[in-house]
Amino acid sequence: MNFSPAPLHIPDGFLNLVISLVFWAATIIMVGLAVSKTNKTLGDKQIPLMGVMAAFIFAAQMLNFPVAGGTSGHFLGGALAAIVLGPWAGILVMTAVVTVQALLFQDGGLLVMGANIFNMGILTAVIGFGLYRMVAGQKRGLRLAVAGIAAWLATMAAALLTALQLWLSGTTRLEIVVPAMLGVHALIGIGEALITVAAIAFIEQTRPDLLTEEKSTSGGGRGWVVAGLVVTILAVLISPLASANPDGLERVAEDIGFLDTGQDAPFQILPDYTIPVLGETGLSTIVAGVVGALVVFGLLILVGRNLRRKSPTD
């Protein structure tokens, strides 16, 4: 079985708690929006369609093609899903894919799943659909070219954000992870782009009714173009800064208070695992431990409130 643990599926343990939770929050907001948008705008036909499409993305990720040197190109599918199904449906489909990969195959962790969904499902949808939406209704050649570029950029942006998350978690050094991730994904992204273009071309040839202009615009308004462009430009600006001049990015992060270089692990909830008021005493670390445990409790109870005894399902 060829479930390559693609370097974008972060396992648990590699992101710290704050980064994990921040991206869970962002993901929950976006997925919540996607749920309400798709409920409103899409017909009852869409649920089985999105479900089977999620299975399609999953299965298509197993299609690989030999590239030079024993490596093979793989397919992520986020951009394709967003282009073909519309951005909100694309986000839901990719959310389902990433969830099942994590749960069924441990390809990606649970606590970091928010980040994984964000990188592979939401970011790719924004860039993939946003850029493609820009040229909706234009000539076929242009549309295909833009779809390819969007797929490549989406892959690169996902890789960049993954690298940044790892760095902000104190898991890795910026000057190493950014060039490494971007280097690998520059190649992977080409495969992604080519498959995306070939798949869209094939669909246009055989079932043009599925990709009409009206369809590709109904799922998302002009706002997606703006979002797509902004995110793309951001990614393009950060990449060289991060790879050629990592100190620059560290400085920026430090200046805006993201990163405290004095700490080996930025963003620990309890700095140095002591409570500042109590000083460096044994009591202090125990209190810190209790607080840590309480955080876990609190989160679990928050979730547990939704535990229902046999809730009637509609």
């Binding site: 369609l49 499409m53 093609f65 498959i195 070939a198 094939f202 079932r207 599925l210």
Partner: peptide, 19 residues
């Protein structure tokens, strides 16, 4: 790549029709 892309497209259509 084109062959692989066509396979992806083919798979997409089959999935769509299945849905």
């Amino acid at each position: 790549v084109k062959v692989t892309g066509s396979m992806a497209g083919q798979l997409f259509l089959r999935s769509y029709e299945r849905s």
